[in-house]
Nucleic acid binder design. Sequence first.
DNA 1: GAGTATGTTATATG
DNA 2: GCATATAACATACT
Length: 254
Amino acid sequence: MARMIVQETALGRRIDDIDVLDRKMFVKGTEEEMRRSFLGSEVTGTFRHGKNLLIGIGDRWLYVHLGMSGSLHMVGPGERTPHQRLRLGMGGSALVLDDPRRFGRFGLYRRPEDLVSEKGLGPDALRITDRELAERMEGRRGAIKPLLLDQSILAGVGNLYADECLFQEGLHPATGVRVMTGAELTGLGRRVRKVLETSIAAGTDFAKLPDGSLLRRREEGAPCPRCGRELASMRLGGRTTVLCPACQPFRADW
DNA sequence: GAGTATGTTATATG
DNA sequence: GCATATAACATACT
């Protein structure tokens, strides 16, 4: 979605002002380098891989990761957001990175390939094939959910979407990946793409997701969208995990 | 004050 | 090397 904002509001526009409001989040490259490349240059394109976004400006790519609470906005003249961390001015309006918790990051890359290799990212979750997913899970041990969140296996699945995918597939998050069948892995690959596509189509507004989506009300004690029984919550890999114990039976004999 | 939160990374442990 | 758990990061909210 962040990429779409840039595509629709910033593409082709010229940067005439730069405001780095949080140096701690500026993790790669220098402000000098940014000014030299960006000022007077146009936004030429975007590139996304998993949760990482690159915005081409001049001869550099602006790297943006939204962390847990970040967001991108195009704001009008004089307008500001509550937690601005970076502002790129263009003809009065500005592209703003807002992030209350400051877990987000930004920086500069020379080429998109550098981002993928430097971070060791797996295939993008929207484009990964069923076979690729199955292959990359081979030889692994442990519960499926933490593996789904591992950005080096596939890039782009976060905690909430991992829960949604496993729920849709009727798989308990702690299912041992070694006891999963080929068909289950294939189904999961297809589900990952489907869940992300559906969310994007809904503008990441969970209320607009189809009936039967866990994300519409992902909380302990809420009714399971499929069977109506109470959803349970547990911690897995340090992350809150919501599931339906009835629809997602536990089997982890690895 | 305590507990929790959509992510990533470092560190310790088995 | 691999997997797991925990803490840390920084802030908002219940």
